[in-house]
């Protein structure tokens, strides 16, 4: 256990070094922007996959945590009551509290009902963001930018510092999530997903485990929201709109939900595709919709789902049973 932990930490460190060096090797600010954007979405998707891929709970409402991270961080910084690192911690705590409240109600439900209830909460959250104008700025978003005073010599107003900070936070969050899914807790999640009844017989408090996972998943997703808020120096209600959840789900599916790195790969691919489609055509819907249809009807699996799980038990399995498909042959 300790050996693999050290190895993983070294891999994370190496990844960080490569990422920090990338924009200097060519690509410049455009590449840096792309990586920050994809990192924000990637954290949302990877956080979401803690629920979808590892626990078998499909949340349609994770955009609300993405938004709660962005909004609470932005509002705290605008109030100028604490430095950036503390504000991030505070934003995570706020999101965790909201998630605990909502999760306690939602995780009792299963399958599609869980999905719909999270969707309903998200729509409610979105309408609060729109109507609570004094705090959220309504549909104008948090007005006037998010001030980021210098801390420990880090000045987030400088693009290089911002990039380094965002990448570091992302790698750290990814590392922590990987630790979680490889821990005994992670194995319990997979057991619940594969056979909830067995888990109950073995004395697992399923409700508590699911709720913990829900909160963790929400908190990590909100880190993505904080990064996006930093990047565009604002927070907007559409962070909490259902289409944001929809895109995150697409990233999870695109990259592959059976692999830990699937969602972040999905985020890299979709963000890149978005850029290309928007740059070269005015018909976003036609092209992206076409790509989605090709993917969902043609490939039917995420990119990394094709990679054979290398005997490591930490890999989540696709919730879809192949057996089901066999009973439902095409005419």
């Amino acid at each position: 256990m300790t050996r693999s932990t050290t190895r993983n930490a070294l891999i994370a460190l190496a990844a960080l070094v490569v990422l920090l060096a990338l924009p200097h090797l060519g690509g410049g600010e455009k590449l840096a922007d792309y990586i920050i954007f994809a990192a924000a979405w990637g954290l949302l998707a990877t956080g979401l996959n803690l629920l979808i891929g590892y626990t078998g709970l499909i949340s349609f409402g994770h955009a609300m945590f993405f938004a709660s991270g962005a909004y609470s961080f932005g509002a705290i910084m605008q109030a100028q009551i604490m430095p950036v690192p503390l504000a991030i911690v505070a934003a995570l705590i706020i999101t965790g509290a909201i998630a605990a409240l909502i999760g306690a109600i939602c995780v009792r439900l299963s399958e599609i009902y869980f999905a719909f209830l999270t969707l309903a909460f998200q729509m409610f959250f979105h309408s609060i963001l729109l109507s609570w104008v004094d705090v959220t700025g309504g549909d104008n978003g948090l007005l006037g930018g998010i001030p980021t005073p210098v801390f420990f010599g880090v000045d987030l107003n400088q693009p290089e510092h911002l990039y380094a900070f965002c990448v570091t936070v992302t790698v750290l969050a990814m590392y922590l999530m990987h630790r979680i899914v490889s821990s005994p807790f992670g194995f319990t999640l997979r057991m619940i997903r594969d056979n909830e009844r067995r888990a109950i017989f073995l004395g697992v408090n399923v409700f508590a485990v699911k709720l913990t996972c829900f909160v963790l998943s929400a908190v990590f997703s909100s880190v993505g929201g904080i990064i996006l808020a930093l990047f565009i120096s604002g927070a907007y209600p559409d962070f909490a709109f259902w289409t944001t959840s929809g895109e995150a789900i697409f990233m999870v599916m695109l990259g592959g939900l059976t692999n830990f790195f699937g969602p972040i790969l999905g985020a890299l691919i979709l963000t890149g595709l978005n850029d290309i489609v928007v740059t070269y055509t005015d018909h976003y819907g036609l092209f992206l919709g076409g790509i989605i249809l090709l993917f969902s009807l043609g490939l039917r699996k995420g990119v990394l789902d094709f990679v054979k799980p290398g005997g490591r038990k930490s890999t989540p399995a696709q919730p879809t049973a192949d057996a089901k498909e066999a009973t439902h042959a095409d005419a």
Binding site: G141, L228, F231, I232, G234, Y236, D238, F239, N274, V278
Partner: peptide, 8 residues
């Protein structure tokens, strides 16, 4: 109509 896309 997404502000973050407009900014990017």
């Amino acid at each position: 109509a997404k502000p973050e896309e407009a900014a990017k």
